[in-house]
Measured scan of single mutants.
Amino acid sequence: SPQLSSEIENLMSQGYSYQDIQKALVIAQNNIEMAKNILREFVSIS
Rank of each mutant, 00 (worst) to 15 (best):
I32S: 10
R40D: 14
Y18G: 10
M12H: 06
Q14E: 13
A28Y: 00
R40Y: 06
M34E: 10
L11D: 02
Q22P: 04
A28D: 12
I27P: 15
S17V: 11
A35R: 03
L4C: 03
Q29G: 13
N31C: 00
I21N: 00
V43Y: 14
L11M: 08
Q22T: 15
Y16S: 05
L39I: 04
A28G: 14
Q22N: 03
E41D: 10
V43L: 11
F42R: 15
Q22Y: 14
D20P: 04
S46M: 01
L4N: 07
I27D: 15
I45Y: 12
I21S: 06
V26F: 04
Q19C: 10
N10T: 08
N31D: 09
G15V: 01
Q29W: 01
Q3D: 14
S5K: 13
P2V: 07
I21Y: 05
S5G: 04
I27G: 14
I8C: 05
N31W: 05
N37L: 05
S1F: 08
Q19V: 10
P2C: 10
N30S: 07
N31L: 00
L11G: 01
Q29E: 13
Y18S: 06
A28T: 11
Q14F: 13
S5T: 12
E9R: 12
Q14P: 01
Q3K: 09
V43K: 15
I27K: 15
S1T: 05
Q22E: 03
P2I: 07
A35L: 03
Y16R: 00
A28R: 04
N31V: 00
L4I: 09
S13I: 09
E41K: 14
A35N: 00
K23Y: 06
S5M: 13
Q29H: 13
K23E: 15
I32W: 03
V26T: 13
Q29M: 06
E9M: 14
G15L: 01
S1K: 02
S13M: 06
A35S: 09
M12C: 13
S44P: 12
S6N: 07
N10C: 11
A28S: 14
S46P: 07
I21C: 07
E41V: 02
S44M: 15
Q19I: 08
Q3H: 07
F42Y: 06
N30M: 07
E33M: 07
L11F: 03
L25S: 05
Q19A: 10
E7H: 09
R40L: 07
Q14D: 14
V43A: 13
S44Y: 07
Q14K: 10
S6R: 12
Y16I: 01
S46G: 10
K36P: 06
R40C: 04
L4Q: 05
I38L: 14
I38W: 15
P2K: 07
I45R: 14
E33L: 06
Y18N: 14
A28L: 01
E7C: 12
L25I: 10
N30V: 00
E7D: 12
N30R: 02
V26D: 14
K23R: 14
I21H: 03
S5D: 11
G15I: 02
M12G: 02
S17Q: 14
Y16G: 00
E9P: 02
G15F: 00
S5W: 03
I21Q: 05
Q3R: 14
S5A: 09
A35F: 03
L11N: 03
Y18M: 12
Q22V: 04
Q14N: 07
N10D: 13
M12K: 12
L11W: 07
I8T: 03
E41P: 03
S5P: 06
L39K: 04
E41N: 11
S6C: 13
N31H: 04
E9Q: 12
N37Q: 08
I45H: 15
E7K: 08
S1E: 15
F42L: 15
V26S: 10
A35H: 00
I27C: 06
D20W: 02
F42E: 15
S46V: 08
S46T: 12
S46A: 08
G15P: 02
V26I: 12
E33S: 07
I21D: 04
A24E: 04
N30Q: 06
Y18W: 10
V43D: 15
Q3T: 09
E7R: 02
V43W: 14
S6V: 10
N37V: 08
R40T: 12
E7N: 08
R40I: 06
E33D: 10
E7W: 03
M34H: 11
I45P: 11
E41L: 00
S17C: 02
Q14Y: 06
Y16F: 10
Q29K: 12
V26Y: 09
N31Y: 02
E41S: 08
S44Q: 10
V43H: 15
L11K: 01
N37E: 08
S5F: 09
M34I: 15
E33Q: 07
I8A: 08
I21R: 03
S17M: 05
A28I: 01
